[in-house]
Simulated scan of single mutants.
Amino acid sequence: MNSRQIATKPNLKKRILAGLIDYSLIFGVLLIMFIYFGEKDSEGIHITGFPAFANILIWFAYMVGFEAKYGGTLGNLVFDLQVISIKDSNSTSLTLGQSFIRHLFDMLDLWFFGLLGILLIKNTQYNQRLGDLCAQTIVIDTKDQSQFYKRFA
């Protein structure tokens, strides 16, 4: 077997549920920020200054930092999904930069109820969404022995 072989599956159900957990947490934090720091005006409620910046920091720490450190977000880990780098043949560890690139494309992948992400996951060679393609990553189910990258190094 080739040491650089990649075997993935779409894992769509798990990936969708993991995304729901992650974005529920992010939107929950955003809701709390609006409740406690929101300012009402004629156009509605908005947040500015540090509370607005704090949302970006929280998103970055959770989505990017947590994923880079643990190989997945909380939603991914609940469903035994792991994000793996296929960029470097010497390491499967995800870098902070790769995680950031993956999540920069989240809004495009989630466009129209996730249609773009689902279409890409189902139709790309390694079941990658746009963020995965750009960051050179794959998502595998760690409990499924038929999914791997560089299993026999």
Rank of each mutant, 00 (worst) to 15 (best):
S42I: 14
Y70F: 13
H46N: 11
V78L: 11
Q82L: 00
G75P: 03
K69S: 02
F60W: 14
Y70I: 00
G44F: 02
M63T: 10
F50L: 15
F60Q: 08
I47W: 03
I47H: 06
F79W: 08
W59V: 09
I58K: 01
T48K: 12
I47Q: 03
G49H: 01
G75R: 01
F53L: 14
W59G: 11
E67C: 03
F53D: 13
H46Q: 12
N76G: 05
P51F: 06
S42G: 15
L74W: 08
M63A: 13
A61I: 12
F53S: 13
G72W: 03
A61W: 02
Y62A: 11
T73Q: 07
T48R: 09
D41M: 05
H46L: 04
A52D: 15
F66D: 05
G49Q: 04
Y62H: 10
G71S: 01
A52W: 09
Y62E: 12
F60M: 11
T48C: 03
T48V: 08
W59Q: 13
G49N: 04
F53Q: 12
H46S: 15
I45Y: 14
F60L: 13
F53N: 09
H46A: 12
I47R: 10
F79T: 07
M63H: 03
D80A: 09
I56K: 11
H46M: 09
I58R: 03
E67R: 07
E67Q: 10
A61Q: 04
N76S: 05
P51T: 01
F50S: 10
G71A: 00
